[in-house]
Write a protein that binds this DNA or RNA. Structure first.
Length: 498
DNA sequence: CGCCTTTGACCGGCGC
DNA sequence: GCGCCGGTCAAAGGCG
C-alpha cells in the first residue's frame, strides 16, 4: 500500500483507496460503509483522498459523525503522502482486503453486464425468429383457409347451407369473400395443379399443357396450373369467378429500380426460360420462372429501360404455391397483394370503365404519384413501383405524409432487422386509411362491400405491396445503400434537406 | 451429371 | 386470312 491512506473508526476498517481507482470503484467501495463517511470523503475531501492521508495519533477507536467533528474531536492532522510509512500495517492490510473485495464486486458486475448483453442478443434473435415464424404461419393459414373453402364449394350440401346463409345474412358472407385475397384466388387454381403434378415433373406438366392446347383446350380452365399467359380475353359474359381468376393470374407488379446486376435479388430461385426482343426497346426482355417448388406459377420478366440502361424493370406475376424463405416473403406477398388491391371484388366490364389509370395513380398515391403508378390498360392491370427516384421522392413524402411509404418496409423487411428496431412505430392506420380512399375499384367495390371492411382490405393490400416491393429492393446492396442514405437524411432532420 | 442459359421454333391473340 | 407480337417450349450447349 504505497499510495493509500486510512484509519480505523470503531475498530473497523474505514477506507481503502488505491490511487488508481476510478470514481466508479470508489463508489462501489464506499457503498459498503456509512453514508456519512461517504458524504464526508466524497464531498469534502475528494482531492486529499488521492494526495494526502490522515494520520491517527491515538490508537484508540474514535467515533466520528461529521467532518468537522472528525477534525475537532480527534485532533487528527492532515499529513502528506510522504508520511504514509507511519500508517499502521494492520490498517493497511484491511484496506487491501477491502479494495480486493471492491474489485471482486466490480468484476462480478462486469460479468453480470456481459451476461445480460448476451441474453439481450439471444432474445433479439428469438424475436426475429418468432416474427418470421408468424409471417410463415400467416401464409399457411391463408392456404388452409383456401383449401377449406375449396372443399366447401365442392360439397353440395354445404353449398345449400351457404346459399341459405347468404339469404339470411349477407354481410358475413361478404366478409368471407373479403378474406379471399389474391393469394387465395391464385391458390385456388394452383391447388388443382398441385394435385395433378404430384407424380409429374414440370416438364410433364408442360407437355400436358401442350397436349391440351393441341387438343383444342378441352380441359377446363380450372385444371390449368401456370399454363400459359395466353390469357383468355376478359369477357364480361364469363362467370364472375372465372373472369376474376383469369385476371388475377394476369395482374402484375412491376418494380423499377436502378441496378447494375442483371436481376434484383428477391430471395427466390429463378430459372430463365426465354428471352425476346420486345418492340420499342433495344434491350432484350428475359423471362424467368420460379423454381423453388414444382409447378410454382410465379414468373417474372426483367428488362432494362430503353431510356436509362441502369434502370431495371422487373415485372412479377402470379402467386407462389410454396413456403418462402424470409428474404423472399416480402416479394411473395407483392403479387397477390397487388392483385388483391387491383381486383378485390369482381371486375366487370363496368368496373373496367372506371379504371382510368391516371385517376388511379393520382388518387391512390396523392403524395407520391411519381413513385407508384397503376396501369389498368390492356391486357392486364399492373402496379408499378418506381424506386429510381430516391431523394426527391423521399423528401416529398416526408413533407406531405409523415412516415408513409418508406416506413412500412422497416416493419417487415427481414433483411434489415436493425431498421426495424431503430424506427419508431408508424402511424400506419391513419396514413393508409387516407391512402385507401381512392380508386375506381374502390368505387365499384362499394356497391357490394361494407366500406369499412374495404378500407381494411385495401390498407393491407397496399401496405403489403409497398412493403414487399421495397423490401425486395432493399435486398439489393445498391438500393440498400441508397435507401439508407435517404432515410438518414430524413432522420437527421427534414428541415435541413430543403 | 445435373442444373442452368441460350436461342430458334412454335403457338395463340390481335389488328388490319 | 395474314402478319405482327408477346410469350413459351425444348434441344443444345455451358458450367460447376
Amino acid at each position: 500500500m504505497d499510495k493509500g491512506w486510512g484509519l480505523t473508526l470503531e475498530n473497523k476498517p474505514f477506507f481503502g483507496f488505491n490511487h488508481m481507482m476510478n470514481r466508479r470503484e470508489e463508489q462501489l467501495v464506499a457503498d459498503h460503509h456509512d453514508k456519512k463517511e461517504v458524504d464526508f470523503f466524497s464531498h469534502h475531501n475528494r482531492k486529499p483522498i488521492h494526495h494526502d492521508f490522515i494520520k491517527k495519533e491515538d490508537s484508540n477507536a474514535t467515533t466520528i459523525t461529521t467532518p468537522s467533528e472528525f477534525i475537532v474531536n480527534t485532533g487528527l492532522q492532515l499529513v502528506t503522502a510522504s508520511d504514509q510509512s507511519t500508517v499502521d500495517d494492520g490498517i493497511s492490510s484491511e484496506i487491501i482486503l477491502e479494495e480486493e473485495r471492491a474489485k471482486n464486486e466490480l468484476a462480478q458486475l462486469q460479468v453480470e453486464l456481459r451476461r445480460m448483453n448476451a441474453e439481450n442478443q439471444r432474445l433479439r434473435g428469438m424475436l426475429t425468429q418468432v416474427t418470421n415464424n408468424y409471417t410463415a404461419l400467416q401464409m399457411h393459414l391463408a392456404t388452409l383457409m383456401q383449401q377449406q373453402q375449396i372443399s366447401t364449394t365442392q360439397n353440395t350440401h354445404d353449398q345449400i347451407v351457404e346459399a341459405k346463409f347468404d339469404q339470411e345474412n349477407i354481410v358475413p358472407r361478404r366478409f368471407l369473400e373479403l378474406g379471399r385475397s389474391g393469394n387465395d384466388l391464385s391458390h385456388n387454381s394452383h391447388s388443382s395443379s398441385e394435385e395433378r403434378t404430384v407424380s409429374k415433373s414440370p416438364r410433364n406438366d408442360t407437355q400436358v399443357t401442350r397436349h391440351n392446347k393441341a387438343a383444342g383446350r378441352e380441359e377446363s380452365p380450372e385444371s390449368e396450373s401456370w399454363v400459359p399467359n395466353k390469357v383468355p380475353k376478359l369477357n364480361s359474359s364469363m362467370p364472375i369467378d372465372q373472369t376474376t381468376d383469369a385476371t388475377m393470374r394476369k395482374t402484375r407488379v412491376s418494380v423499377r429500380a436502378r441496378s447494375e446486376a442483371p436481376m434484383i435479388s428477391d430471395g427466390c430461385q429463378w430459372r430463365k426460360y426465354g428471352q425476346k426482343m420486345a418492340k420499342g426497346n433495344p434491350c432484350p426482355r428475359a423471362y424467368y420462372r420460379c423454381t423453388m417448388a414444382v409447378g410454382c406459377p410465379v414468373r417474372k420478366q426483367v428488362q432494362r429501360c430503353a431510356e436509362d440502361r441502369t434502370i431495371l424493370n422487373t415485372t412479377y406475376e402470379g402467386t407462389h404455391n410454396h413456403p418462402l424463405p424470409p428474404a423472399a416473403m416480402a416479394m411473395a406477398s407483392t403479387t397477390s397483394a397487388a392483385a388483391n388491391m387491383l381486383l378485390s371484388g369482381s371486375m366487370s366490364s363496368a368496373d373496367e370503365t372506371l379504371m382510368n389509370p391516371n385517376f388511379l395513380a393520382r388518387t391512390m398515391l396523392p403524395c407520391s404519384s411519381s413513385m407508384a403508378t397503376i396501369s389498368a390498360s390492356a391486357p392486364f392491370p399492373t402496379i408499378t413501383l418506381d424506386l429510381t427516384q430516391n431523394q426527391n421522392s423521399l423528401t416529398y413524402n416526408q413533407r406531405s405524409t409523415p412516415i408513409s411509404q418508406f416506413q412500412i418496409p422497416f416493419q417487415s423487411s427481414p433483411q434489415h432487422p436493425n431498421f426495424i428496431t431503430s424506427m419508431p412505430p408508424p402511424p400506419m392506420p391513419q396514413v393508409l386509411h387516407n391512402q385507401s380512399k381512392f380508386s375506381g375499384l374502390q368505387i365499384s367495390q362499394d356497391i357490394h362491400q361494407p366500406q369499412q371492411l374495404q378500407h381494411v382490405q385495401n390498407n393491407r393490400s397496399f401496405s403489403d405491396t409497398l412493403t414487399a416491393a421495397t423490401a425486395a429492393i432493399t435486398a439489393d446492396p445498391n438500393f440498400t445503400a441508397a435507401l439508407a442514405a435517404a432515410i438518414s437524411s430524413i432522420i437527421t432532420g427534414p428541415g435541413k434537406e430543403q
